[in-house]
Simulated scan of single mutants.
Amino acid sequence: MILISGATGGIGGEVCRIFKETGTPFRALCRKREQVADFRENGSDAVLGDFDQPETLSSAMQGVETLFLITPPTQAQVAQETAAIDAAKQAGVGRIVKISASDSNVRSPVPWAKSHALIDHHLRASGIDWTILKPTAFMQNFLWFKDAVAKGFLPQVTGSGSVSWVDTRDVARVAAAVLTESGHEGATYFLTGPETLEMKEAAARLSKAIGHRVRYFDLPSPMFWAILRLTGNSRWMSKGLVVQFSDVVAGHHDIDPTFEIERLTGKRPHSFTDFIQDHLQAFSR
């Protein structure tokens, strides 16, 4: 049995959708009873479990052979995921496939990059077979700025830096493949989109697709932080994103395309143009 954490989120939810479509048995890990009920009504197995309450994980992991581990970036991420790894080991789970980050580093000023590095080290030392997926920044993050794009501008702090943006749907396809195949034990895969893009080029692609000019505004960090706060991000998240984009990206530290997605799934990843077309209504006026 494969246990899917983050089953109601973007990547975990897409993995569940793929497994449902292909008839692959899985169990969705949910924090709320109504989520469990929704999965069961749709004919899928689901169980209650909360990473903030590790004692609830042991029963959820009974009979599980493989765990898909993903949590949102929060200040509790290290505690949550290390507790899940420990619970998995105690329950006899044989393998964990974890979503990490391409820029993970224990000395990173980006909080979740440091968190992922610490968790990765804990997983590799756990004695459980592991596979670590390290995606770059998600194309879906552009949806934070959909209202601004609709008004004709794209705010960022990346200067002339570029990113090999990746679509979360492609990350989920890799996860689904790795979860159901052997031979990935002890592997770390860096996942990117098919190209690197500066913000000026991203704005040009948006302009062409939605039919009006979108200008890239390279903002001062405090102004970008304020926009992130206005779009619903926490203080902690906003501060981390400013550091990530103004340091890692603007400093040209992002990685080039790896083409691992095509190699692992046999299908090319979505381009940024594909992503825009699939979310055209969100970006349009």
Rank of each mutant, 00 (worst) to 15 (best):
F26Y: 13
F26R: 02
F26A: 10
F26I: 07
R27V: 04
R27Q: 04
R27N: 02
R27H: 04
A28K: 08
A28G: 10
L29G: 04
L29Y: 01
L29F: 01
L29C: 00
L29T: 04
L29P: 02
C30D: 01
C30Y: 04
R31E: 00
R31F: 06
K32I: 01
K32F: 08
K32N: 09
K32V: 06
K32H: 08
R33T: 01
R33I: 00
R33Y: 04
R33E: 05
R33P: 03
R33V: 03
Q35T: 14
Q35Y: 07
V36W: 02
A37C: 09
A37L: 14
A37D: 15
A37N: 13
A37I: 12
A37R: 15
D38S: 15
D38T: 14
F39T: 03
F39W: 05
F39Q: 00
F39S: 01
R40P: 14
R40K: 15
N42Y: 06
N42L: 11
G43A: 07
G43I: 10
S44I: 05
S44W: 00
S44V: 12
S44A: 11
D45L: 07
D45I: 05
D45E: 15
D45H: 04
A46D: 13
A46W: 10
A46C: 11
A46R: 13
V47I: 15
V47Q: 03
V47P: 00
L48H: 00
L48S: 08
G49T: 05
G49K: 06
F51P: 05
F51V: 09
F51W: 12
F51N: 09
D52K: 07
Q53W: 01
Q53L: 02
P54D: 09
P54K: 05
P54A: 13
E55H: 12
E55K: 12
T56A: 03
T56R: 02
T56W: 01
L57N: 08
L57H: 08
L57P: 09
L57T: 08
S58A: 12
S58W: 05
S59W: 04
S59T: 02
S59V: 02
S59I: 00
S59Q: 10
A60T: 10
A60H: 06
A60S: 10
A60V: 10
M61Q: 08
Q62Y: 06
Q62R: 14
Q62P: 00
Q62C: 10
